[in-house]
Design a protein around this nucleic acid. Structure first.
Lengths: 255, 255
DNA sequence: ATCGAAAAGAGAGCAGTGCTCTTGCTTTGG
DNA sequence: CCAAAGCAAGAGCACTGCTCTCTTTTCGAT
């Protein structure tokens, strides 16, 4: 009896995984453009032609890696969110932002693969869409929570943006006010602008203390989407230790 | 005499220009990864090896194209700025943002070349730094003007960001208050986040009316760097429920 | 258990790439 | 005027993605 389509199918999964693993290694070491099917096969001790039984083309391998990268980033974002579960929406927002940044710094080439220039003539297939939205879903979730708790500011929505904002909200953030949906999408893109600039060297002779800079930029982002930051520093200049430590310190935002 | 190394040198720059031109054509048609020295040479009717007299490597050709792209983008930004010369700072800011976006939409592959993932092991040489800063310089100029005219809000600067902000201002925006310098750098990165997301397809099933969406996102960006927008359309001036103490508006500097 | 089909591996080969080296030719400058 | 320097071209190396053929292995029926 054993496994229905047992041995052979299992071997296939294993080989597929091994290929992806080795490919990911080369990706991390050399970047997407230098990822070579032949090199992967060589490293795995198999003929390059045999590899085509598993991935019909180099682009298909890349697609698999892209999906994995999206998932890995999504997981990181979700983990960062859960680690800040107790905190208020604004803090959770910045936590997720920092989670995204941290993942990007840890996996620069994979980040480049999904948020850098699209590869040659390559266009991402539909299967990349769901994993690609995981980060956005986390952010939407935070805004939804804030909205339910009444902690979401609703800045005026210009008339000509309204239809678009309404459509956005209807499409993928049903329980969010339109202005929040629109602001969220903008902030989403802007977040990756910050991360990308740091990662791709645009900040090289510009931003020194990237950690601090990013934290405040993310906080600013939270503010523009309508999240109130718990007593950042209103009029008075608090010495504001701005705890870098995890959780603990600022129960804040109790409400 | 005057034409010291006359004919030969002139031929050299002509051939160099022809190579770059053809390379740019292929770049626009196929993207950076598919740019082939051999194909360029073939199209120009010369041996591929001859091309190496002009560009010692493919990366050097790419570097030349990168510099040109930065300059082209910088020109577009400056042109957009001048076209809005009469308007107030906020409007000029959004004009420059839209200029950047327009250029990116018109030259997607060149945009990808400079703001997408860096090519393989390639690291941009110093010579790319000045042309890369042209857009930022335009934005800084707008803020400087607004600052001189008193039309620049000064949101509170968190204590731990201050050293960094002071350094930034000192380094490349000497006559700007530190908080403006820091906010400007963030907005700069965020602007390219918006443009990149639109260009690289991240907005594909998300943002429909990109034009309108971008215009308002750019306006929001202007606001976060401290520029007050003269009320556009839609609702009247609604008191912003921003928690972050701004509330300030003062005289909307006309000009 | 056997046999045929399906899946998987291996090798050769094609067309393409970046890049180097050698060989001739032309322009230039002393 | 002639050597030196710059330039073009060809051959060749090592590499790539990918296809095609051929052999071996494995699996599911009979």
């Amino acid at each position: 009896m054993s496994t229905a389509h047992g041995a052979r199918a299992r071997a296939r999964i294993e080989v597929t995984a091994a290929i992806k693993e080795e490919a990911r290694r080369q990706l991390a070491a050399e970047g997407a453009a230098r990822l070579s099917l032949r090199a992967v096969a060589r490293e795995l001790g198999m003929a390059s032609s045999a590899l085509y039984r598993y991935f019909p083309s180099r682009d298909d391998l890349l697609t698999a890696l892209i999906i994995d990268a999206y998932d890995s980033l999504g997981e990181a974002a979700e983990a960062a969110h859960e680690a800040a579960a107790g905190a208020g929406p604004a803090r959770r927002w910045t936590a997720v932002c920092e989670g995204v940044r941290g993942w990007a710094l840890r996996h620069p080439h994979e980040y480049a693969l999904i948020y850098g220039s699209p590869v040659p003539g390559y266009t991402a297939p539909r299967s990349t869409v769901p994993p690609a939205s995981r980060v956005a879903l986390v952010l939407i979730g935070i805004l939804r929570d804030a909205h339910r708790g009444g902690g979401l500011a609703r800045p005026p929505l210009p008339a000509d943006l309204r239809p678009e904002a309404v459509r956005m909200a209807a499409d993928f953030a049903p329980d969010l006010p339109p202005e929040a949906a629109a602001a969220m999408v903008a902030a989403w893109a802007q977040l990756f602008g910050l991360v990308g600039f740091e990662l791709f060297g645009q900040f090289n002779r510009v931003v020194e203390d990237r950690e601090t800079f990013f934290r405040h930029a993310a906080g600013q982002l939270a503010r523009t989407v309508g999240l109130e930051l718990p007593q950042q520093d209103g009029g008075g200049r608090t010495p504001a230790p701005q705890a870098a430590g995890t959780g603990g310190e600022g129960s804040s935002a109790g409400s």
